[in-house]
Design a protein around this nucleic acid. Structure first.
Lengths: 203, 203
DNA sequence: GTCTATACTAGGATAGAC
DNA sequence: GTCTATCCTAGTATAGAC
């Protein structure tokens, strides 16, 4: 029996999201096409529309899944922030490294998760995932600023702007001359985050 | 006489590049299309191909023009780096702010100017423009590191990764909740650059 | 040097068969 | 719930008229 005839998905919807994430990782958000996703999932070009009404809806689903993965990675990275003996500066640095790796590999990060165009649909799942995602690094930042919420938000913004920049510039090939790997970019992002954190502690 | 019949460009090529930059600024690099550029320049869809053999060539020309503009803006921002009495930390901060403004407004920055896909064509103009663009901030960084070239490159990378991140995250609408303007993002980028510079001076 | 016209490709989305 | 077939839109690029 042929490949396609054999294809009985228990969960085509999830498989489509996986293919979409892989396609975005390879070619970027702009290159996401429902037709190509269908091809990679080995279903017909019309099949995805039974699960997603539009390309946009598929993109929202992919961003939501990715946001949840990112949250999980953050939680795994700094699970003990706030407990005595933990090092919040190290945790924030580790979060920045995680974010750079995530964004460089996925081809998107907070830019898509919080993109106005996607959130405008009042998509509750993505809104919830977006709300949750920055909690772990914010907790680390709050430890660093001694509970000052405004300063903590500022620190997180700084650290993650830098981490986002490293990821996107690495992805564009800017550091390719130096044969820098994505891990080098992540290490640089972590070092930058630690410098920024220490500057807040000792103004 | 009709609009189009009246259109006699002294320099259609330059006008096409201008339209391309405006289109990218509005809708992003991915949305650049020769057809739309022709429409905006009020020429036929075939006309651009007399000046650019492909969409890619038009993109290279736009990136080259933008790179030269950015260099000029850098030079205007910190013209006195190295002279006695100048403040290289302030100059680096100002460069970061300029870069954030430039990138947020144009929809691209170093990512496109140094993009491997565009430079692969051995396009000499773009290569030259790319080589020149980072010179002013590098001079400021060299003043800060006391002539240590490696540390200066590192500092510039850090400062501009952060500036790039602020620009792209601002462009994605991430800070829209807070009603932050692009000038706020640029000010944040400058502050971050100054913190990173001071951390190098007092390790 | 620009215009019109056209060949070709690709994707978004829908309808109806099974 | 998936497939096939189709419509429509949009873009890249070329050819030949003027």
């Amino acid at each position: 029996m042929s490949k396609r005839a054999a294809y009985h998905h228990g969960d085509l919807k999830a498989a489509l999201v996986e293919s979409a994430l892989a396609l975005i990782a390879e070619r970027g958000v702009a290159a996401l096409s429902v037709a190509e996703v269908a091809r990679r999932t080995e279903v017909s070009s019309g099949a995805p529309y039974r699960h997603f009404p539009s390309r946009q809806a598929l993109l929202v689903a992919a961003a939501t899944t990715a946001a949840r993965n990112l949250t999980a990675r953050f939680e795994a990275t700094c699970p003990w922030t706030g407990l005595p003996g933990s090092d919040p500066v190290a945790n924030l640095g580790a979060s920045a490294a995680v974010y750079t790796l995530f964004t460089a590999e996925h081809g998107f990060g907070l830019d898509l998760i919080f993109a106005a165009e996607l959130r405008g649909d009042s998509d509750e799942d993505l809104l919830d995932a977006g709300r949750a995602v920055m909690e772990p690094p914010l907790q680390a930042a709050l430890s660093i600023t001694g509970g000052d919420a405004k300063a903590a938000l500022n620190l997180v913004e700084r650290a993650f702007a830098a981490a986002h920049g490293y990821a996107t510039l690495w992805r564009s090939g800017l550091y390719a001359d130096r044969q820098a790997t994505v891990d080098d970019a992540a290490a640089d992002a972590a070092a930058t985050a630690r410098i920024l954190a220490r500057a807040i502690q000792n103004p």
